[in-house]
Simulated assay, not measured.
Amino acid sequence: MDNADLLDQLRSLSARIQELVDRCQRLGDENRSLRSQQEQLVGERSQLLAKNEQARSRVEAMIARLKSLEQHT
C-alpha cells in the first residue's frame, strides 16, 4: 500500500468519524427533546387525573344530595 492509498483511507475514516459524531449530536438533541416532551406529558397527565378526581367527587356529592332530597320528599 502506498502513501496515497493510506491517505485516502485516512480521509475516508475521518469522514466516517465525523458522520458518527454528527449522528451522535442529532441523537442527543432528539433524546433531550423527547425527554422534555415526556416530562410535559407526565405533567399534563397528572393535571388531568386531578381534574378527573375533582369531577368524580363533585358528581358523587351531587348524587348524594339528590338521594338526600329524594328521601325527604
Rank of each mutant, 00 (worst) to 15 (best):
L6N: 04
I63Q: 02
Q37I: 09
R11M: 02
N31F: 12
L27V: 14
R45S: 09
A64D: 03
R32F: 08
L6Y: 03
E60T: 08
R45K: 13
Q71T: 11
A61N: 09
S57L: 13
Q25I: 09
L6H: 08
N31W: 12
D8E: 11
L66Y: 03
R23N: 13
D2E: 05
M1I: 10
Q9G: 15
A15T: 00
L66Q: 12
E60V: 08
V59F: 08
Q54N: 04
Q71R: 15
I63W: 00
Q25D: 09
M1V: 15
A61W: 11
S36G: 15
L13Q: 07
D8Y: 11
N31C: 14
D22K: 12
L20K: 09
L34D: 00
V42F: 00
V21F: 06
N3Q: 11
K51M: 13
L48C: 03
Q25R: 11
E39P: 01
Q54C: 05
Q38M: 13
Q47N: 04
L20Q: 15
L34K: 05
M1K: 15
Q25Y: 05
S12Y: 12
R58I: 06
L69S: 14
R45E: 04
K51C: 05
R65F: 02
R35Y: 13
Q47M: 02
E70A: 08
A64G: 00
N52D: 08
Q40Y: 00
S46T: 06
E30C: 03
Q9R: 10
L49D: 14
L48F: 03
E39V: 04
G28M: 06
V59Q: 07
S33R: 10
R56Q: 09
R23M: 07
E53W: 02
G43T: 06
R16N: 04
Q47E: 04
Q47D: 03
E30V: 07
N3V: 09
R26Y: 04
R58Q: 11
R45C: 13
E44W: 00
N52I: 03
L10K: 07
Q38V: 11
L6S: 01
K51R: 14
L69P: 07
V42N: 01
S57D: 14
